[in-house]
């Protein structure tokens, strides 16, 4: 560029001050990020503390904050775990298609299509889940309740499509591109020479993948799943719009009475909340923050450990 022309004109004395100012700005920006994250934790704690003594009317009719938050936490974990059970095998399959099965010319557009899934706003997923998926999947739930009703998960009765299972399916669709993107990266990092050695020994493509790609990518896949779990835990709108929640603890996935999730509960009640109720909701948000922080931390830690090994 025009570097060579501008360079000689800079006098040393001015540049020193410029340097320290610029370095200060850069360092300040870095510190501000640390401050922001600390701020998130601190402000949530300050506003959440009054909720600990809340009870009765102020805690939405519950005896204390633990009784209020526990069913929400249960719903959050349940929805996220089901979502991951659905999304993980799919994501690994799609990532394999992109990294090892599709010809390179096709792999790129496929990756782009999967990225499009990540670009769709969550509120649009919520609208789609509520207006399209829920009615479409109701017959499936009816069938499940009729034929597999002896399983506690499918006890039914299936009267609405807006169940925790539908919410989990929407969450799975949203977590899929994240898991796929990371899996794809780690699959592609498998040393070529390992793959070629396996193929040269007469392995089929699947045997090659099982013997070289999977062992190499294990920690990467686990961390991808953890990050997808983090996304599913914190997702708000899709659940708030899809789920018709009644806030109890149940493992019946297809009935009209569903556990709510922390994020969705905040979104639905925050507008009308006042007084200590606001603190109660913020406290539940703090719980969500801690849980998703832990999950993300674990995911990054596993990823970092895997990298050192490789």
């Amino acid at each position: 560029m025009s570097t060579t022309t501008t360079a000689p004109s800079a006098p040393t004395a001015v540049s020193r001050r410029g340097d320290s100012v610029f370095a200060g700005l850069a360092t300040g920006a870095g510190l501000l990020i640390m401050l922001a994250l600390a701020g998130v934790a601190i402000f949530l704690i300050i506003e959440g503390i009054p909720a600990i003594s809340a009870s009765g009317e102020q805690a939405y009719g519950k005896d204390n904050i633990v009784v209020y938050v526990w069913p929400l936490l249960f719903g959050t974990l349940l929805a996220a775990v089901i979502a991951l059970l659905i999304a993980t095998p799919l994501a690994v399959g799609v990532a394999l298609v992109i990294s090892h099965y599709a010809p390179r010319r096709v792999a790129r557009p496929i990756g782009y299509l999967i990225d499009l899934l990540a670009a769709v706003p969550s509120v649009v997923y919520g609208l789609w889940g509520r207006a399209v998926l829920a009615p479409a999947i109701l017959p499936v739930y009816a069938w499940l309740a009729d034929h597999l009703g002896w399983l506690p998960f499918f006890d039914g009765p299936a009267r609405t499509g807006r169940t925790i299972l539908t919410a989990a399916i929407v969450l799975a669709v949203m977590a899929l591109p994240i898991i796929t993107a990371i899996c794809r990266e780690v699959f592609l990092q498998t040393p070529r020479i390992h793959e070629e050695a396996a193929l040269a020994l007469g392995a089929t493509r699947w045997e090659m993948i099982r013997m070289t790609v999977f062992p190499y990518a294990r920690s990467g896949v686990i961390s991808a799943v953890m990050l997808g779990l983090g996304r599913a835990l914190g997702e708000t709108m899709a659940v708030a719009m899809v789920l018709s929640a009644s806030g109890l603890v149940t493992i019946n996935l297809i009935s009209a009475e569903n556990p709510s999730t922390i994020a969705a509960n905040i979104a639905l009640n925050f507008g009308n909340a006042s007084g200590t109720k606001v603190n109660v909701l913020i406290f539940s948000g703090l719980v969500l923050f801690v849980v998703s922080f832990a999950v993300n931390f674990l995911g990054r830690w596993i990823a970092a450990r895997g990298q050192v090994k490789a």
Binding site: I33, L37, V40, G234, A263, F289, N296, G299
Partner: peptide, 11 residues
């Protein structure tokens, strides 16, 4: 920064 990417939007 890595951890921040995982902050739930509602938080």
């Amino acid at each position: 920064v890595d951890v921040m990417t995982g902050i739930p939007s509602i938080v």
